[in-house]
């Protein structure tokens, strides 16, 4: 395989809090290949959401390099950065907060198309309908307001918005954590279908090892802003080496569907 899609090295972000400087992200390095899912796992405060925001240039790092599609991503600015963003998208945890509360479905899908200069208005209307159908929704939904549709539909719309500009990498920040379990599985399935067909890579951020082991190729386990361990997702989750990895595995709720319920043990 040639050069990685995303290569992050020595990424560091410090915050000042009450006179003390705390490194939320401390010398983190990882890479993602095209079409691959890399999961970032860790407890809250481990720095995983900060890494997502750094990779997306929503905040600026104090040190480190980010190389995306063979170019220095951190050196881009202004119009060049905005143009590049078409290839690097994001889906947020709370699909309601991720959209302008006043927006219509058509508008949130029109925004990326219009911003990245997609053709005429009728062409965009056609593309919006196609995007909705691509994520398993009816094209009629375009005329509805964002706050009228269900949580699962909203997250599908968020995914449609993310794939509108044909990205090579999507950052999914706890993208399925707020969803009902049955909806969650459908959304994960949709993400996998998109990955297979469009060769999109995912940076999948989650505290839920069950979800990670279901869809990630590799996993990086974080603790207090540092990498605790990393490797093949099934292997790491099957036999964690780090203390935090063991704690995460031990804490995941387990369903024992064959024997008697776990409730009896005390």
């Amino acid at each position: 395989m040639s050069s990685p899609l995303l290569a992050v090295s020595g990424l560091t972000k410090r915050y000042r809090r009450g006179g003390k400087t705390i490194a939320a992200v401390d010398d983190i390095s990882f890479h993602i290949e095209p079409g691959e899912t890399l999961a970032l796992a860790g407890p809250s405060g481990s720095g995983k959401s900060t890494i997502a925001r750094l990779v997306l240039r929503l905040i600026e790092p104090d040190a480190g390099h980010i190389e995306f599609e063979g170019g220095d991503f951190l050196s881009l600015n202004g119009a060049a950065l905005r143009a590049r963003r078409a290839r690097l998208q994001m889906v947020f945890q709370d699909p309601l907060a991720a959209f302008n509360p006043r927006a219509m479905v058509a508008r949130v899908l029109d925004d990326p198309l219009r911003t990245h200069g997609v053709a005429s208005r009728p062409e965009r209307t056609r593309r919006i309908a196609a995007l909705l159908e691509r994520v398993g929704l009816s094209a009629d939904l375009a005329a509805r307001a964002i706050h009228e549709v269900s949580g699962g539909q909203r997250q599908r719309i968020a995914i449609a918005r993310a794939i509108a500009t044909k990205p090579s990498l999507i950052v999914l920040d706890e993208a399925v954590s707020a969803l009902d379990v049955s909806v969650r599985r459908q959304i994960l399935q949709l993400l996998l279908d998109l990955q297979r067909q469009e060769r999109i890579a995912y940076l999948f951020i989650s505290h839920d090892l069950g979800v990670i082991s279901a869809i990630a190729h590799r996993v990086v386990i974080l603790d207090a802003g540092r990498v605790a361990e990393s490797g093949n997702a099934r292997a790491v989750i099957g036999a964690p080496q780090s203390a935090i990895g063991k704690a995460l595995v031990a804490a995941a709720p387990k369903l024992n569907r064959t024997s008697q319920g776990a409730a009896d043990r005390q």
Partner: peptide
């Protein structure tokens, strides 16, 4: 729908 650590990976 529950995704446990031992679940068959969707992947």
């Amino acid at each position: 729908a529950h995704l446990g650590l031992d679940a068959e990976p969707l992947l």
